[in-house]
Amino acid sequence: MSVPSGAEPVRRGPRRSHRATDEGIHYSRWFWPSFTIPASIWLAILFILPLYTVISIAFGTVDPIFRGPLPVYEPWWWSGEQFGRVLGDSVSFYRIVYIHTFEYVVIASALCLVLAYAVAYYVARYGGKRKTILLALLIAPFFISYLMRMLAWINLLDTEGYINKILTFLHLVPHPIDWLSGRPSTVIMGLVYGYIPYMILPLYAFLDRIDINLLEAGRDLGAGPARTFFRVTLPLSRPGILAALVIVSLPMFGDYYTNNLLSGSPKTTMLGNLIDDALGSTGQGNKAAAFVLILMVLVLIPMLYYMRSTARSLLTR
């Protein structure tokens, strides 16, 4: 059956022949499902099956000569040996990698949020005539390769780069700072820089939709701007904030290239680096699969949260 009847009153406009469309007078029973078949098959083969392969490798065995992974597809033959080892190592020496990853992602996401909210709020509320140009500038970073921009940062942050030239010229620091010598702060800056555009735009879209009348109502009822913001705007934008946080933090958990390019020091190793390194070395395929599986479990809750909220917004909008 179709839309729950409870949702019915929300719908706008005339709904004369609701029964007719939904109960298949005009459409044959398989008409709409058939539309979903190509994409569903695609995802079954190239999304679900690959995820299963990862599990089969993580719980599989190793080929005796070349040390490559041998996936085991039958769950009853799965061996926890490889996965157990990775788990054991995760508790012992890899723990610090998980902690780093978590720290960097949390700090970077928080910085992203503060900055992105301010920018999105400004553009949505005060953009005025400049809105179009502001939006174009906000979208601009999408048009040049992320890696190209990172490359530019490498050059800016170099000991002989512009940042250090400016800092030393202004006598803010006595010697050039070696930004690229494996500093967590540089990695976090890179993460914020790389992912913040993905946060500003959805936040903007969300804030732009907030009815200005609500704000005026708040003000008319005597609330100051700060109060209006904290009691009206912020609560209204909470779902948008959470969704945007999920959108930027999920890929950050799997990021390895920002770290590789801006640091390269073992001191800043992240979970993504473990996956990428394992995948690139001999006889470590099982390990790569195990890390992927662990990452998947770690991000499961935010993923489910995001999906639930998306599904809700689709139902109630």
């Binding site: 070349f66 040390r67 992974p69 995948l279 690139g280 006889g283 470590q284 395929g285």
Partner: peptide, 17 residues
Amino acid sequence: GTAAAVPTLSAILDACS
């Protein structure tokens, strides 16, 4: 046994499968 950080990923061996 090198941890090769190489541009393209190694195709993991499927020998002897």
